[in-house]
């Protein structure tokens, strides 16, 4: 069973709450996905049109909240957002995002590492969103990240896992769970991440903007489960060539 910072999860699919066409559909889709942890963002209240309060929709008993620091452009902004999240009753969990480039929304490795270090010391359970850089993953673990969240491809691009080679190294070396985040556009992408040995995946856009988000949420749930089962049953071994039995060639020197 997946355990992050001592908390057990029976579902390896984490959900997002952004980009849904309505609160009602979001609620149903999350329900169908079976996920137990969901991300939320923090924003200033629009005083002229406050709109729905997401906290009145989410069942906190059912879902563990993973506030993100989306919008932060450097470590200081992310740290400020994190403190807001905690003050808002969001708990200690945090998906740390530092994305200075508004075009690609790729995470800043230097600021992410710096913020992780500070926030871990403040008692946050930090899950940093990161580019799929194996050394960065290790450095983040060294400063106390509870999990690492490498991207499959840039946020919202639906391109799947373009960083396969690096994510494989990250998984191989990891001392904490690896959650593949961003770019998973189809259930097959999620299944691949799980087959590779990822501990969990986080999916938002692909479910939220699907023709039928509720059915798509189910599809992702099944894909994640199938991928995990395949991984656990010993997949991931690709035979590069078949074994030919041969005589004692080359070892005649042995006594």
């Amino acid at each position: 069973m997946l355990t992050i910072a001592g908390h057990k999860f029976s579902s390896r699919l984490f959900g997002g709450t952004g980009k849904f066409s309505s609160s009602e559909i979001m609620k149903k889709a999350l329900d169908a996905s079976g996920c137990e942890m969901i991300t939320v963002a923090l924003r200033r209240v629009n005083l002229n049109d406050p709109g729905d309060d997401i906290m009145s929709i989410i069942d906190r008993k059912r879902y563990l909240l993973l506030p993100n620091t989306s919008g932060a452009r450097d470590a200081d902004e992310a740290i400020r957002l994190a403190r807001f999240a905690r003050a808002s009753g969001g708990g200690d969990w945090l998906k740390l995002e530092v994305t200075p480039d508004p075009r690609t929304l790729l995470p800043d490795p230097v600021e992410t590492l710096r913020a992780t270090e500070v926030l871990v010391k403040e008692g946050f359970i930090v899950l940093p969103y990161m580019n799929a850089d194996p050394i960065l993953a290790l450095r983040l673990q060294d400063v106390g990240a509870a999990a690492v969240m490498p991207l499959g491809s840039p946020i919202g691009t639906n391109q799947g896992i373009l960083t396969r080679f690096q994510i494989e190294i990250i998984i191989e070396q990891a001392r904490v769970p690896v959650v593949v985040d961003a770019g998973l556009g189809a259930p097959s992408h999620a299944a691949l991440a799980m087959e590779m040995g990822a501990d969990a995946v986080l999916v938002n856009t692909a479910i939220a903007v699907a023709g039928d988000p509720v059915i798509m949420a189910q599809a992702f749930a099944k894909a994640v489960e199938a991928g995990r089962m395949a991984y656990e049953s010993g997949l991931g071994r690709q035979q590069r060539e078949s074994m030919a039995s041969s005589p004692q060639s080359g070892l005649e020197f042995l006594d």
Binding site: G16, T17, G18, K19, F20, M26, T39, V40, A41, L42, R43, R44, V45, L47, D53, I54, M55, L65, P67, N68, S70, R83, F84, A85, A87, S88, G89, G90, I155, L202, N204, T205, A208
Partner: peptide, 27 residues
Amino acid sequence: IVRREDYADYIMEEGAILELIRFVGGG
């Protein structure tokens, strides 16, 4: 950041700079 339990007794003053923030949907 103001602690939630202090909201009721927290009297605002002229020229104060207030930020009101809350959770919204996000991934």
